[in-house]
């Protein structure tokens, strides 16, 4: 006498096992929490903002005058840079300001072909190491000399800015 009653129990057991395995899989997977910051969308926006600000600063008002960024690099005027850059990246339509922090340095080539980087503007807030800064840069053609090269010789320098939001 063959009894088929056990088949139903077997199927039930298999189904229950599958459901338990699926739940365990979901629970194990759920331990990695994925925050919106991990998608780097805000980093992309910050990078575009920083680059646009630098391009704006490196645009001269007419064909013969210097751009503001050129004048800043030639005179090593970190305060003017900080003020102008801060206005561009942090101003909003209303009264309140955005909270983008930044630091800037400028690199140039010495006569012996080594690269020297100096701080143009110190960070607006001390770095703790936890910031996720993005890096933007802008080429500037400088027509005056600098302390290491007193002769008026055309040169190009690279202005680099690190931006982060806190």
């Amino acid at each position: 006498m063959v009894d088929t009653r056990g088949q139903l129990y077997t199927i039930e057991g298999v189904a229950a096992a599958l459901i338990m395995l699926a739940s365990a899989y979901l629970v194990v997977n759920a331990t990695s929490i994925y925050t919106p910051g991990d998608t780097h969308i805000s980093d992309m926006q910050l990078e575009v903002l920083g680059n646009d600000a630098l391009v704006m600063m490196n645009t001269a008002t007419n064909a013969t005058s210097e751009s503001p960024l050129q004048a800043i690099v030639e005179t090593n005027n970190g305060n003017a840079f900080g003020q102008m850059y801060n206005n561009i990246v942090n101003n909003r339509t209303g009264q309140d300001q955005d909270h983008v922090q930044f630091m800037a340095n400028v690199s140039y080539v010495r006569p012996d072909n080594t690269v020297n980087s100096t701080t143009l503007l110190n960070m607006s807030r001390p770095l703790s190491g936890g910031e996720h800064a993005v890096h933007v840069s802008e080429w500037v053609i400088v027509k005056a000399g600098d302390p290491e090269n007193p002769f008026p010789r055309n040169r190009t320098e690279l202005v680099e800015v690190y931006l982060w939001r806190d």
Partner: peptide, 29 residues
């Protein structure tokens, strides 16, 4: 930017120095 600065350097009287700087700086920074 590098395209703009290269093209600009060729119309400058002292462009050779600028062009040398571009090579070194882009590699270093």
């Amino acid at each position: 930017e590098i395209r703009g600065v290269i093209i600009e350097s060729y119309s400058m009287p002292d462009g050779a120095n600028v062009q040398k700087d571009i090579n070194v700086l882009s590699l270093a920074r």
